[in-house]
Computed example of a mutant assay.
Amino acid sequence: MQLEITGLSVEVAGKRLVHDITLAAGSGRLVGLVGPNGSGKSTLLRCVYRALRPAAGDVRLDGTDLHAMDAREGARLLAALPQEAGTEFDFTVAEVVAMGRLPHQRGSGRASAADTEVCARSLDRVGAGHLSGRGFLSLSGGEKQRVLIARALAQEPRVLVLDEPTNHLDIAQQLEVLALVRDSRLTVLTALHDLNLAAVHCDELYVIADGRIAAAGPPHDVLTPALLADVFGVRAHRVRHPETGAVQLLFDRLAARTEPAEAPAPTAP
């Protein structure tokens, strides 16, 4: 399913945070949003999963305006994992993941055997099947994140929107989750903090700075030293991953402090 964002602008409390953004995520593609903190990535994603209504522009799924769909129809097509996702009540992990089936249920909303099977399979896909009977609030941050990803997968969407999905995960879990997202063959739009993870796993990147698109394209074309200096304020050194060939980055401060030159020895009178 194609996700298209056209001319999208967002205003909050009279201040424009996102300015006329247009981007697309093709069917089955993993598209990343990267940029400094406060650049507008999360605000843009909140419009995509309908937590915010844009001041201008629209979000379309295969040409249909997402904001014109009823909530149940939209939730059957698009699932989201916001940064602040969670629950204040101590549901079991199985109950949290089962919430992903609600858009597919009618009448009493009771879970069917098929719903239970989908939920169990989703937990297994993120390596969290053994947590099924645990209380959600008793989990570590990384365990909670995996369970919430399982809930999104249990929704069986065609588009997945993720805001920093690797938060609280150790490096092995980060790699596993992003590989799982790639292998899902869903259309994925995700904000990522780690530029090296974005370079390896994303098909295309959009760099957001001050609420605008600063660059877009394949990671190798986008993550240039000049752009990284301008947008992130760092000096970047590009290297190739020895197995995948993907661009990887080493960073220095842009204005690294230099040691003062040694004072000349005094001369004899």
Rank of each mutant, 00 (worst) to 15 (best):
M1C: 09
T6K: 15
L8F: 07
A13M: 09
A13Q: 13
A13K: 11
G14E: 00
R16P: 10
R16C: 06
L17F: 10
I21D: 01
I21M: 03
T22D: 08
T22L: 02
P36W: 02
K41P: 04
L45M: 01
R46H: 10
R50F: 09
L52I: 11
L52W: 09
L52H: 14
L61K: 07
D62S: 06
G63Y: 02
A68Y: 09
D70T: 14
A71E: 14
R72K: 14
E73C: 10
L77K: 11
L78W: 03
A79S: 07
A85K: 01
A85W: 04
F91H: 01
F91C: 04
F91I: 04
V96F: 04
M99E: 06
R106M: 09
R106F: 12
R106K: 13
G107M: 12
R110L: 10
R110H: 07
S112Y: 05
D115F: 01
A120M: 04
R121G: 02
R125H: 12
R125F: 11
A128L: 01
A128S: 12
G129L: 04
R134M: 05
F136Y: 14
L139N: 08
S140I: 12
E143W: 00
K144M: 08
K144S: 05
Q145I: 10
L148T: 02
L148Y: 03
A152C: 15
L153S: 01
L153G: 02
R158C: 00
V159N: 01
V161G: 07
V161K: 10
A172M: 10
A172F: 13
Q173M: 08
Q174N: 00
Q174K: 02
L180M: 15
V181N: 06
R182S: 04
D183V: 11
D183K: 13
L186K: 02
L186P: 00
T190G: 06
A191N: 11
L192T: 13
H193Q: 03
L195S: 00
N196S: 12
L197A: 06
A198S: 01
A199R: 05
V200F: 14
E204V: 10
I208S: 02
R212Q: 14
R212F: 04
A214Y: 05
A215G: 08
A215P: 09
A216I: 05
G217P: 00
H220W: 13
H220D: 15
D221R: 15
D221W: 12
V222W: 03
V222L: 03
L223W: 13
T224A: 04
T224Y: 01
T224G: 00
P225L: 01
P225R: 02
A226F: 06
A229W: 05
D230E: 15
V234A: 10
R235Y: 10
H241Y: 06
E243M: 13
E243F: 14
Q248H: 09
F251T: 12
A255Y: 11
A256L: 12
P260R: 08
E262I: 12
P266Q: 00
A268E: 14
